[in-house]
């Protein structure tokens, strides 16, 4: 049982993909065999599902990135296989370095604020109070809106001349800010909107994670004389770790691929100041009269690699934690 953590109160927690503990051999092998059968029986639906619905798009994306697609060969086929030339082209593009920097800043800052605010709200809502269920549900409303509407609303509010944010600033005597139209502010503005969109996700997942922590643990901690802060750090935080980790990982994946929000608010501009890899990929493939599918898909692949790297780090961190 070396791969489980012992919490102060004796509940064991294991993370995603934690591997088997080792019972005695001979009998174990037979049992392992039948266990494997059962395990994969449970996995069959999702495997079939993945093969049926993800394989073709994934293959399309790879194929697009490895061939020299023009609009003509996109339609009639016969695009030449050019290996990694599309990837080399985008890596050598002067737009690459800023796009990468913006992606990293956009992702990390969004993630940090979404998670912190989401966790704070989850803790706040964890103790039920009058209206708490309704208010918690209302926090989900932003997710009911098609992104084209919520992003347009943000762009509306942040408009330099007729936006409500600048109108409010003017009321308190601050000069208007060109939120979306100046290279200094545009990235910050799209991060702001993205944090807003991400809060409900973090709130709901973390809140339900909190609900899964047995109340007895808090009672025990209280008997031991722990105050609220200590309870948070000693009970809540460690027990919430698997859920937190997956929330962050998923948040990272979702933030990396955000393009529509930025596209609607700034088109990645002005002067590429809010262009991330995802918006760049979209602009190459769809944002122009003459689509460049190959380079667009190549940028998409870079994003997949970034997400995979994060996934590896996640699994590594999980393992180290359990081996302690």
């Amino acid at each position: 049982m070396n791969q489980t953590t012992q919490t102060p109160t004796g509940l064991s927690v294991r993370g995603l993909g934690g591997s088997a503990s080792g019972p005695p051999r001979a009998r174990a092998r037979r049992r392992l065999h039948s266990e494997q059968w059962a395990a994969w029986a449970f996995l069959t639906p999702v495997t079939v599902y993945l093969l049926a619905f993800f394989a073709y798009p994934l293959y399309r994306n790879l194929d697009l990135s490895l061939r020299d697609y023009t609009v003509r060969s996109f339609v009639s086929g016969g695009a030449e296989f050019i290996g990694l030339a599309n990837h080399r082209k985008v890596l050598g593009d002067p737009a690459f370095a800023p796009a990468l920097t913006h992606t990293v800043v956009f992702t990390l800052v969004s993630l940090a604020f979404q998670f912190a605010i989401g966790l704070a709200l989850a803790v706040f809502f964890a103790k039920s109070f009058r209206l708490s269920a309704i208010l918690r549900a209302l926090f989900l409303v932003p997710w009911l809106l098609p992104l084209i509407v919520s992003a347009s609303t943000w762009s509306w509010m942040l408009n330099s001349d007729s936006g409500v944010v600048n109108a409010a600033l003017r009321l308190v005597g601050i000069a208007p800010v060109h939120w979306l139209t100046s290279p200094q502010w545009s990235l910050l503005s799209v991060i702001l909107a993205n944090v807003w969109i991400g809060i409900p996700f973090n709130l709901v997942v973390l809140y339900n994670g909190l609900q899964s922590i047995p109340a007895q643990l808090y009672e025990a901690a209280q008997i031991d004389g722990a105050n609220g802060w200590q309870q948070f750090w000693r009970v809540t935080f460690p027990l919430l770790r698997p859920v937190s980790a997956i929330t962050l990982l998923l948040g990272l994946v979702y933030t990396l691929k955000v393009f529509d929000l930025i596209w609607i608010m700034t088109r990645g501009g002005p002067s590429d100041s809010s262009t991330t890899l995802a918006t760049w990929s979209y602009r190459l493939s769809f944002g122009n009269l003459l689509p460049e599918f190959g380079p667009g898909a190549a940028v998409g692949n870079l994003l997949i690699v970034m997400a995979l790297a994060a996934g590896l780090i996640y699994i590594r961190a999980q393992k180290r934690q359990y081996q302690r």
Partner: peptide, 23 residues
């Protein structure tokens, strides 16, 4: 013809750069 899109994009990029004061 199809050269137009390849000229139009640099053109709007330049226009945005100048208007936003970055060049």
């Amino acid at each position: 013809g199809t050269k137009y899109p390849k000229i139009s994009q640099p053109l709007w990029t330049a226009m945005q750069a100048a208007l936003s004061g970055s060049a």
